[in-house]
Computed example of a mutant assay.
Amino acid sequence: MNRIVGKAWRDSASIIVLNKLSGDSLARGRGAGLNYEVLLQTRTSRASFPNSLVFPGGVNEPLDESDAWLDLFGSFGYTQHDFNALHCAGGAVTSIFQPDPVKRHVALRITAIRETFEELGLLLCSRDPKSKRTSLWTSAIADVETKNWQDRVSKNPGELLNLCKEYKCYPDIWGLHYWSNWLSPVHLPKRFNTAFFIAAFEQEPPKLESNSEVSSVQWSNPIDILARNNNRELELYPPQGYELNRLIHWTDIEDLIKFAQERSCHSNENFFPVVVEARDGVLHILPGDDLYPTNVDLINGNDRLLKDKTVLELRQSSKTLHRFEIIPSQSKAQFLIQNYKPKNHINMGDKTIEVQITIHKSK
């Protein structure tokens, strides 16, 4: 699978950055039942996924896999054993981490950290030697010439290594926990195979300084974002909508990060949506759904499966549901889960959620 994916998609990495709310913030009602917020940015009209709300991240570069990074980590006391711990050996390997899972786990975390710094000026790095790093939480440093280094790193990804050497720090890859793997629908002109990671701050992170690809950035309550999306106040793509719904399964950030850390080295499904055209609407089918093809065509997307039934009839004829349903005539979209048990991840139970999602249009 990885050989085919490599031809069609560009590997990328994103971070779902969380921030633990203080007691004062909770007392003022900012949490709405959660004790954390999520970092979201609005893309400009010229950027990929224009005008939408997304997690920070971007495309993997060859320099993210340089052996020079291993030398840098080694200078802080990290060894091959620490790199190996990022991947659970012996099990299946999610496609984006093939063919060398340990090397790819390191490189994609560096990608996510580099891109987050480029976009938002948030440098997820640490100066602590291995002997002092025991926390669940991620680290960040703020005493850098942010704008200057953002420009340099944007022009040359290798400049992140020079930044780390100058400021005597290293990318906090152990503060990032692997979460999920999404592949863009095949009809997009640009396709991305994206690893999502989770990182969390126990205290308020440094000031953000966004670049020209970002029109705004905000710390937001996931429940509030989902409500505003359903009220058509903002746009979410399916991966963001899905992951925000998955996050709110946890109300306490420490429980969430402990779970994320425990499952981080395990593989899970490639979330590759397959389009099914019904008589009155369109379904975007996810792995585990009864309609999900046994053999997925990663190049042509199974050429849009056609069904001579309505959306409701297709739902009623399926036992296991894991899908988005879109009925244009009713201006209605729903996210449905029924009898779906994910591999190595949160079981959200049976759900039917009214959503407003940005669906990628065909070329």
Rank of each mutant, 00 (worst) to 15 (best):
K7G: 05
A13G: 08
K20E: 13
D24H: 13
S25R: 13
L26Y: 06
G29L: 07
G33I: 12
N35K: 02
L40S: 02
F49M: 08
G57I: 07
P62F: 07
P62D: 03
E65Q: 06
A68T: 10
F76P: 05
Y78C: 00
D82S: 07
F83A: 11
H87I: 02
H87P: 10
A89Y: 07
T94P: 02
S95A: 14
D100I: 10
L108H: 12
T111N: 02
E115Y: 01
S126R: 04
T134P: 01
W137E: 03
T138Y: 00
S139E: 11
A142I: 11
N148C: 00
P157E: 07
L160N: 03
N162P: 12
C164W: 12
E166W: 04
K168N: 13
C169M: 13
L188F: 12
F197I: 06
I198F: 01
R232N: 10
E235A: 12
R246F: 04
I248S: 04
W250S: 08
T251G: 00
F259I: 01
S264N: 12
S264Y: 05
F271A: 07
V276W: 04
R279Y: 05
H284G: 08
G288Q: 08
G288M: 14
G288L: 04
D289T: 13
D297T: 11
D303E: 11
R304A: 15
K309T: 04
K309D: 13
E313C: 09
R315D: 12
Q316N: 09
S317F: 05
I326K: 09
S329A: 02
Q338H: 14
N339A: 13
N344H: 00
N347C: 09
M348W: 10
T352P: 06
T352Q: 14
V355L: 14
T358H: 15
I359W: 11
